[in-house]
């Protein structure tokens, strides 16, 4: 059974059809990349998968671990191991990063039937993860994402991913705005997940990330459809030729 199976998915936002028949299958153990021009619908797909309000599937089906995903609340999806690294992480003044992440981790642990971590065990774990990601501990006591630089926000997403250890991680342009070192760290973070029963769906504009991530499949989303799928070679080709030729093919 695939981890994720998307069939003929049509998605509308404010009565405007953005995704127009997406098919995508992700098996456990795989890394997939989605590329595509601005406005193609990449974030729309990520948002739909994570259950954001306002994204309506008008046709088609999404199965996660063999079960319908779309009738589940965002928190149920998260508890079931789905993780979205946001393209634009949200600032939450007044709530410390550490409190937030502990609440999140314990919610997921509870759903898995594992005991909650107390403050000490949580801090031990999160500090260990921060060290691996080369992310300063001072970020624990700051309000969630408040005043973080663009790159720091992305690192914070990766930290959460490392902590929550998801089955399926959807990374929405987590590489944008990252310097080369940070990029390597993101990739390390993703690879650290890389057990047989995990999978990653990485949305990106750059071949750069894929050099580190080494995807098994690369898809190109154009005009709300997957215009082409291939291996890493496709990413290189896109970087050289742009998306124009696919847009024309799609129109033809």
């Amino acid at each position: 059974m695939p981890l994720l199976e998307i069939r003929d998915l049509h998605v509308s936002v404010e009565d405007q059809e953005i995704l127009r028949g997406v098919d995508l299958t992700i098996e456990a153990g795989e890394v997939h990349a989605i590329m595509g021009p601005n406005g193609a619908g990449k974030s729309t797909l990520a948002n739909l998968l994570s259950g954001r309000e306002g994204y309506e599937a008008t046709r088609g089906q999404v199965l996660y671990r063999g079960k319908d995903l779309l009738d589940r609340t965002p928190e149920q999806r998260a508890r079931d191991g789905l993780f979205l690294a946001f393209q634009y992480p949200v600032e939450i003044p007044g709530v410390t990063n550490s409190y937030f992440m502990k609440a999140s981790l314990n919610a997921l642990r509870g759903a898995r039937g594992e005991p909650e971590l107390d403050a000490f065990d949580f801090l031990t774990l999160v500090k260990q993860k921060m060290k691996q990601l080369d992310f300063d501990e001072s970020f624990l006591n700051r309000s969630v994402n408040e005043g973080f630089s663009g790159g720091e926000k992305k690192r914070n997403e990766i930290l959460q991913m490392a902590l929550l250890d998801p089955r399926l991680a959807v990374l929405d342009e987590t590489d944008s705005g990252l310097d080369i070192d940070a990029l390597r760290i993101v990739a390390d973070g993703v690879r650290a997940l890389g057990r047989e029963d995990r999978a990653v769906l990485a949305i990106t504009h750059y071949h750069r990330l894929l050099e580190y991530l080494v995807p098994d499949h690369v898809h190109v989303l154009v005009g709300g459809r997957i215009a082409r799928s291939g291996d890493r070679g496709l990413a290189l080709e896109l970087e050289e030729r742009g998306y124009g030729w696919l847009e024309q093919e799609g129109a033809a």
């Binding site: 999806r77 992480p89 937030f100 919610a107």
Partner: peptide
């Protein structure tokens, strides 16, 4: 903000409580 917290596994009720707390904390 509510969606961000829910996407990390917090129930809607818990997310509301946490954001309310964040507002009060200052």
């Amino acid at each position: 903000q509510l969606f961000y917290l829910r996407a990390r596994g917090l129930t809607l009720a818990r997310a509301r409580a946490l954001l309310t707390f964040g507002f009060a904390r200052e």
